[in-house]
């Protein structure tokens, strides 16, 4: 697992049933593009988050494929429907096989 990787998500704590909410997500990751060279002139191998998924109670909200052109510390903002109370599960997939995830609960109110 790459060091210093920390996910952050911003989800409202409550919503009305059927409401559309805005979600922001960020994960600290260097997103090494595979294009850069080190001081000795050797290519630094690509090491990125290549996929980001968001599900609510098991149903997909967003499934995003990321390429090296996504900036360091990938940021994604999108909108989700909240049909009922439940959990958003956010998952980031690293080139090195690591998987980072975080869960946010939302109540109806």
């Amino acid at each position: 697992m790459a060091s210093g990787v920390k996910p952050r998500v911003k989800v409202p704590k409550t919503a009305a049933a059927g409401e559309a909410i805005t979600i922001k997500s960020l994960i600290s990751h260097k997103m090494e593009s595979g294009q850069r060279k080190d001081k000795e002139g050797n290519l630094i191998p690509r090491s990125i988050i290549n996929r980001f998924t968001v599900e609510f109670n098991g149903q997909s909200v967003l499934d995003m494929a990321m390429e090296p052109a996504i900036s360091t510390n990938p940021y994604v903002q999108f909108e989700a429907l909240v049909p009922e109370a439940g959990d958003f599960v956010f998952t980031w997939y690293d080139d090195d096989g690591s998987v980072y995830d975080t869960t946010k609960s939302i109540a109806i109110g």
Partner: peptide, 20 residues
């Protein structure tokens, strides 16, 4: 750069991100 696949619970088919 990216491909966004929107699921049934996407409230809109929109997204924003930061790119190189």
């Amino acid at each position: 750069v990216a491909q966004f696949n929107f699921g049934p619970l996407a409230a809109s088919q929109s997204a924003s991100t930061r790119i190189r």
